[in-house]
């Protein structure tokens, strides 16, 4: 979100707010492409949550995320687009598929793929979407990106705005991610330690923590 917002702000700085030069009724080629890709993305997203084939859902998610990347490209935010592909398509979806394959990934429909909470989920989704659309529309209104001018979303511009105007959120996010990382390590080690303690034969033996440290030292 922060990255996208940063890009948007960067775009904001170099765009014209002159809505009068662009009519809604005479769209350019880029706008038509933007709209079409948007429709495809929306369709893929809807299929993702409605299909009953688990792996298909993950693959439709690829389409949706890829469509989003194309939208970024059309908005001249090249850097964000490639990062989107790298992180979401290249890693998150692979992780998702990995998890699916590791647990349960039947070919064909899963009749129990539906949850009883679907209507609640729909409500939450619609609310979230409405809020987001409202915020974005309210923030940008009739802002247009000048496609012929200097690229507003190039790596240089994005980097500059990220590390000048948005450096605090950026750092806060990295600390958050670091905390998540450390938390994951602590959780996994704790589970291991408990298992080791449960299998320890005598109470007189030292705790698993020091022992492991010792073994690591000798390794």
């Amino acid at each position: 979100m922060t990255l996208a917002a940063a890009a948007a702000t960067a775009a904001h700085a170099t765009t014209t707010t002159a809505a009068e030069t662009h009519g809604f009724l005479s769209p350019t080629g880029v706008e038509i492409a933007f709209l079409l890709v948007g429709l495809v993305t929306l369709g893929a997203a809807v299929v993702t949550v409605t299909t009953r084939q688990l792996v298909h859902a993950a693959l439709w998610l690829v389409v949706a995320l890829g469509g989003l990347a194309v939208e970024y490209l059309l908005l001249t935010a090249e850097f964000i687009a490639w990062v989107q592909v790298l992180i979401y398509v290249g890693s998150v979806v692979v992780l998702l598929l990995f998890g699916l394959m590791l647990t349960r990934a039947p070919i064909g429909r899963s009749p129990d793929a539906d949850s009883g909470n679907r209507w609640v989920a729909l409500g939450v989704a619609v609310t979230a979407a409405a809020a987001l659309v409202w915020v974005v529309v309210d923030a940008f209104r009739t802002t247009w990106i000048d496609l012929d001018g200097a690229p507003a979303g190039s790596t240089e511009v994005t980097g500059a705005s990220l590390f000048q105007h948005w450096v605090l959120p950026f750092e806060a996010l990295s600390v958050l991610l670091l905390a998540a990382l450390v938390g994951a390590i602590v959780l996994s080690r704790k589970a291991k330690a408990e298992r080791a303690a449960a299998t320890a034969p005598t109470p007189g033996t030292p705790g698993p923590g020091p022992t492991r440290r010792e073994t690591e030292g000798t390794r």
Binding site: W82, V85, V89, V93, V94, M101
Partner: peptide
């Protein structure tokens, strides 16, 4: 010429692996 070339190549190369995953599952 791609502005964020390094990201482009690494991102797109990562996508190729999806093919193997799809093949493996399907």
């Amino acid at each position: 010429v791609i502005d964020a070339g390094v990201f482009f190549v690494l991102a797109v190369m990562g996508v190729g692996v999806l093919g193997s995953l799809m093949a493996g599952w399907a």
